[in-house]
Amino acid sequence: MEKDTLLAVRGLTIQYETDSGVVHAVNGLDMELRHGETLGLVGETGAGKTTAALGIMRLLPEPPAKIQSGEILFKGEDVLKKSDAELRSMRGKKVAMIFQDPMTSLNPVLTVGEQIAEVIQLHERKSAAEAHVKAQEMLRLVGIPPERFSEYPHQFSGGMKQRVVIAIALACDPELLIADEPTTALDMTIQAQVLELMRSLRKELNTSMILITHDLGVVAEMCDRVAIVYAGEIVEQGTAHDVFNDTKHPYTMGLFGALPDLEGSEERLHPIPGLMPDPTHLPEGCRFSPRCPKRTDACVQTLPKNVETVPGHSVRCLLYEHGMQG
């Protein structure tokens, strides 16, 4: 493991056992995050991005979820081997999470200030008064006047609530922040404000971040590296520059192609044919093969391996396995 690696996930496999069969949510996921870096985890509904993130936090309800295999090395220690007490001290302190919906991720009966102070007192040896001061500082940091400390969540707008959520997440100065669709529920101009805030805080606090999103625009603005998730696997991973400007995997190409272009004047869009595979019955071979325009007979049979096309840019596609070019 390289020295500056903060988080390394290897072969993570997570399944849900339900009445209608085993749901293969995450299938052998590999990824790495360096200190101070932002990694974008991109994929459509049901791709397994949120399950993977909750798995890293060990926040999955087990059962029905079950981490089958793999390791999650956070600063060299395997999260899967930690005790409940160790996990509790890790969550919120070293790793923090922001959820999609700011409306439901705050407790409606506590003031926002109390909720920030709570996480501080939970993880740091601080008196109530000290936590109060620190909480006010956090509010100022996320652009909320500290006077609003004793207001309740319902008195805040959606964008402001998400700022509070960010303040809670960053209150204990975590090394890793996992943000699950943090701006999806927000309006465009508010999203721009929150993204701007996250960018400046990231620089100020030097926090590493995993940003889960379906929006390639948000990824382009925020991320150093990008991992494209399809059917519980990372199909393409690399620097944002490589993935956006030297796209390799047919699924990634399909995603870009399906987006309406803001500058061009294309008459028709190019959707990816078909649907996401049913996670209880994943296709044999390459999971994307039933929808892939470049499918060959081999794709239907063989599960492609991860291939590094250039250093730091890897693809999971047979087109690149034997030095062939697509």
Binding site: Y16, T18, S20, V23, L275, D278, P279, T280, H281
Partner: peptide
């Protein structure tokens, strides 16, 4: 979870 895309 969706079941078999509802075709059967």
């Amino acid at each position: 979870m969706r079941k078999g895309n509802g075709e059967k």
